[in-house]
Nucleic acid binder design. Structure first.
Lengths: 268, 268
DNA sequence: TGAATAGTGTCTATCAGACATTATGTC
DNA sequence: GACATAATGTCTGATAGACACTATTCA
């Protein structure tokens, strides 16, 4: 970060009065996506206070200075907000908490006029890819918090312009699966190739016909998955061979991409 | 947009005082990228006023309400800022001004502590892909404005954290060429396949060895280019066959992607 | 044994990469 | 003709998609 040293600048700064201007507020909102019981879901909270008291929206809130007077980084604010609503604490010692496995990415910033009846508000939206998390707890300022199937959430009239943010989040998530290895973020630390395939099917909402092809692609991609060397304990009750376990191998890019049918249709 | 109707909400809003909180400011900054004389360049301006008076940075400024009291949309603010520094007016009647061909995309939002010595500032950065534009003019608050080769700009110590924004812009631009048809945004309305290939080479900073392959890919991609049906007037003085002219065909996606060598190396 | 799930082998049409060839222009 | 640029043709190795087959488990 660059900092001014000129003495003129110091005089200017001493005389600078930020309250002269029409105030603007900045919020950080989080679209936390996960898969719960095989359903693509998003974390929604119900507002306790006006505006939109009693209505559902994405968790979020104004950024404000901490005890030291400094504002937090945007990503830090987003992580804190998510921790507040999920009841999970982000462990600074990098312990493997459930929240530690959540992938936070900046989604987009929404700043059109009329978004908030109080004043002009610019919202920095974050996208969280999460493995199956525990039941959320209502944080301060919220009546309740709930993992909600995205198809259901899209039908709800959310507060502010959160329907637009949610739509962008879903679109981005579906796209990210195509050319990154982030599908693993929806799974626990150890998973099978079948689990991974199901992540794609659940989030895209379409079957993946290629069984062998999907496996080949996953194995051929550098740093996508790594064999653990153990088998799953039995799941389900309908029989079937026990599957090999894998864990995410830290890679990011998945190229050439695995395209969803929707994308294939779009490119003709 | 959703709006509260509850009478309790109206009372709450009447009593709401936005000046109670620590003020935050929001800026919109634009990384305008273009190709000038075969060189990948970015628009920089030199600040007239503190902080960082006399130093170079990306064009940008605080968002503030217009005459009607309403704040503009973020993208509108970015377009206005760019128009100010380039001397081009964005024609609302959609006339084919040079600025009309500029593609504006939101890049990312930067909001860490200590970005601005005056107060906490959150910057929404926009990425502009532009065809060769005229010499810029210094807008209000700037001493001068200049198209600067990106390799040179990366070496300059820019004001605020604009080096980080510029780096993100360059990275995004290089990536966008891989899987979108946005390379055409760097070219005039009519161009040749050779021109298009040169855009890739200039922005990626590496030669594309495939001549036939590149052509095939471009032609096979739906809505990438469309044959105009005319040939170029002679250019250069070294001879050679006259090329067919094409124009952008309105498509967005370029899949499977054309990968740069850098990306290929990254995926092993 | 049959059904269910996991994983491998193989064939083929397609395509990216490489390179040769043809076409059209200036000097 | 020598050279430069544009455009097309053709060969080959890799691979996505499709499908058949093997492997392991439970009822």
């Amino acid at each position: 970060m660059n900092h001014p040293t000129d003495p003129n600048e110091k005089a200017f700064l001493a005389a600078y009065d930020p309250t002269r201007y029409t105030p603007v507020a900045v919020t950080v909102d989080v679209a936390a996506l996960t898969i719960r019981d095989g359903v693509f879901s998003v974390l929604l909270v119900r507002r306790a206070n006006p505006p939109f008291a009693g209505e559902w929206c994405l968790p979020g809130g104004f950024i404000k200075p901490g005890p030291g007077g400094d504002f937090p980084d945007l990503a830090t604010a987003a992580a804190a907000r998510l921790a507040l609503e999920t009841g999970l604490t982000a462990d600074p010692d990098d312990a493997p908490t459930a929240l530690g496995r959540v992938q936070l990415r900046q989604l987009a910033t929404f700043g059109g006029p009329g978004r908030d009846p109080r004043m002009h508000v610019v919202s920095v939206a974050y996208l969280a890819f999460a493995p199956d998390l525990p039941e959320p707890v209502a944080g301060p300022g919220t009546l309740e918090a709930a993992w909600t199937p995205v198809v259901e959430a899209e039908g709800v009239d959310l507060a502010f312009d959160h329907n637009a943010i949610l739509a962008a989040a879903i679109k981005r998530a579906r796209g990210k699966l195509e050319y990154t290895t982030m599908a693993t973020a929806f799974l626990p630390a150890e998973f099978t190739i079948g689990d991974l395939k199901r992540v794609y099917e659940i989030i895209w909402g379409e079957p993946i016909r290629l069984t062998a092809g999907f496996r080949r692609k996953v194995h051929a991609t550098k740093n996508f998955v790594e064999r653990v060397g153990a088998l799953t304990a039995r799941r389900g009750t309908k029989g079937g061979r026990t599957a090999e376990l894998y864990h995410a191998a830290g890679g990011e890019l998945l190229l050439p991409p695995i395209l969803s049918q929707a994308t294939k249709d779009a490119i003709g």
